[in-house]
Nucleic acid binder design. Structure first.
Length: 236
DNA sequence: TTAGTCAAGTGGCGCC
DNA sequence: GGCGCCACTTGACTAA
């Protein structure tokens, strides 16, 4: 088999040989004694310890040979990861240098970086998905709470509670529960007894089902509550 | 046997 | 038009 210069168009094949131990001698010596597995590129010819020259195959071999998978060594992976941490992309010079250092072809380094970027992106997407799931859960819970509150307020309309005036300690008039037709907010208005001169007016505003999610989402973002007391004079 | 991993192939797209 | 990148796919390999 002729030893040719590195060529990107040659067929790339590797063989994992169980029991093959790295040695300065030819790997095809077939050391079956140990349990070591070393990845061999059948296009590469060893010329010394950890020195491999890429070679081309005969045409008929190329056509018939099955595709073999290259397994990067731990050291190669470590160096590639280290390089990736520094920079997620490589310029041609960096690629060439790294390939030389790792005794790989530039194309293999390039492919590794492409796949590594894809893995990073996938991981990021998975994390974002998890975050959104949790957020959805929290919003659902807030929605449930607010709906309960709306139900309670509706119930108050049916059976108005007795509210004591903070001024006179006497019972106040019945509360009224109204729904604003424009913004569909439920409004409870408690009007003080006529004799209670400093008439107290309390308004509780709750959003309806449709707007709760958005309001809760926004409020959780900005750290405020969707359920708030506002002066009765504040129109919707 | 099967699901998961990963190097490598392929085609499309944008940039210069 | 060549190049680099990306999304998608393929196929070898491994571990459960």
């Amino acid at each position: 088999m002729a030893v040719l210069p590195i060529c990107s168009s040659h067929l790339e094949l590797t063989i994992s040989v169980p029991g093959f131990a790295a040695s300065p001698s030819l790997p095809s010596s077939g050391d079956q004694g140990g349990s070591m597995v070393r990845d061999l590129d059948i296009n590469q010819v060893p010329v010394g310890e950890d020195e491999w020259i890429t070679a081309s195959m005969e045409d008929e071999e190329e056509a018939a040979a099955p595709r073999r998978k290259l397994r990067l060594t731990k050291e190669q992976s470590r160096l590639l990861e280290e390089s990736f941490r520094q920079n997620h992309t490589l310029n041609p010079k960096q690629k060439e240098a790294l390939a030389l250092q790792l005794k790989l072809r530039p194309r293999q380094v390039e492919v590794w970086f492409q796949n590594r970027r894809a893995r990073s992106k996938l991981k990021q997407t998975e994390m974002e998905c998890e975050y959104l799931k949790r957020w959805f859960g929290s919003l659902t819970e807030q929605n449930r709470k607010l709906q309960r509150e709306v139900e309670e307020l509706r119930a108050m309309k049916v059976a108005p509670p007795t509210v004591m005036s903070p001024h006179s300690c006497e019972p106040l008039l019945a509360s009224t529960l109204t729904m604003c037709p424009r913004c569909e907010r439920v409004t409870t208005t408690t009007t003080a007894a006529a004799h209670d001169k400093g008439s107290t007016k309390t308004t509780v505003v709750a959003t309806n089902t449709n707007t709760t999610t958005t309001a809760a989402a926004l409020s959780s973002k900005v750290g405020t509550s969707a359920l708030q007391s506002r002066p009765s004079s504040a129109a919707c």
